[in-house]
Design a protein around this nucleic acid. Sequence first.
DNA 1: GCAGCTATTATTCAAGCGTATAATAATACG
DNA 2: CGTATTATTATACGCTTGAATAATAGCTGC
Lengths: 207, 207
Amino acid sequence: MNRRSFHRAPEGERRQELIEATLDCISEFGLKGATVRQIAIRAGVTAGLVRHYFESKDQMVAEAYRAVIASLTEKASQVEGDPETRLRDFIAINLTEPVADSRSISLWAAFISQVRVDPVLSEIHREGYLAFRNSLQDLLADFLAAKGKPADAETCRAFAIAINGLVDGLWVEGCLAGDLFREGELVAIAMSSVEALLGTSIGNTKQ
Amino acid sequence: MNRRSFHRAPEGERRQELIEATLDCISEFGLKGATVRQIAIRAGVTAGLVRHYFESKDQMVAEAYRAVIASLTEKASQVEGDPETRLRDFIAINLTEPVADSRSISLWAAFISQVRVDPVLSEIHREGYLAFRNSLQDLLADFLAAKGKPADAETCRAFAIAINGLVDGLWVEGCLAGDLFREGELVAIAMSSVEALLGTSIGNTKQ
DNA sequence: GCAGCTATTATTCAAGCGTATAATAATACG
DNA sequence: CGTATTATTATACGCTTGAATAATAGCTGC
């Protein structure tokens, strides 16, 4: 009776593989289908290894949630260029792949549904949401200032809430039923909606 | 050793109690915490009874999802009065309790996270979403016509997508972190945003 | 090339899961 | 008031779960 041969991976790498496998399983089978054994199979290891890298399954799931938030926010936060370009890119990035796809929203929803249940996840969520909205608010402040429009904190706050809501809402719609929209339709609707909200052109959408 | 005494409930009533208990458990403990035993405790019966009313736990959960969608859509669909009033009420209803609260979004998210996994839930979701957006689109058509604005199908479709996204997004924000907003702030932002989008006043927000 | 360290596998365990079945209490009806 | 019906309880079963433990294979440094 001989054992499987295996590869000894460096710590960071294996941890990341396990987290990625966790997310794969959650998006495919749901939170309750993401068992330690399924996750291990997906990662190509045995179940026991999970506990070698994480104190518990719950801790691993929490770290996986951090990874999800990071992937949802990092792309949008590293926009560059003049304020107008950054605003356009911010909108486009959030409403096209890879941010907008069915896997993303499955993960997002799975964790959101646990926010009320698990205080740890709740805290992770709040941090991520505030960081996201604040970066949008800063972006809007730059944009309005560049356009010579009033950009006091209260105005920016209201615009940030509205535009964040709009983009999030369209993101959800697109993720859940992308086939109900034409190619580029959501981005186009978002662009013209933001223009209407701000009362300003945000430039050509280079279609 | 004598048994518990119990009350024989009429069929419809008990079914509804079980569905309500299912939703309570999902919102409090998440989908994986909503076990047959927990649900039975919440409903004040024993676990075996579930299978007397439903073919399986999965079937009960699916019916519970139908109930969630109904509760999220019915209030908004029965607005009355002139188009302007209906549009205002539609927005306000969706962004105040009982539609906008943390229990609602927990339930919504729990099911959304399963839409990819379970084709039955997927079908229930799509029906509900389309009905919701179509009723908004009809409402907008009436409103624009009353205002003497162009109300062709394509325009209404784009407005319906945008406003549906805006309201949904604000609903999510408010449900998840209501304490980050002032009383009535989300509704006020939604009202003025919709005015900006449509380029029309929608009347006083009676504050 | 061997000794020691540890990442990994293999196995086991108790608890909890959804479900099936049998006993029984509550009601309806003649 | 007695009897049939069935909604409900009680109990048991097989399976899966997250976790603990022991054995071992793969590296690293000497």
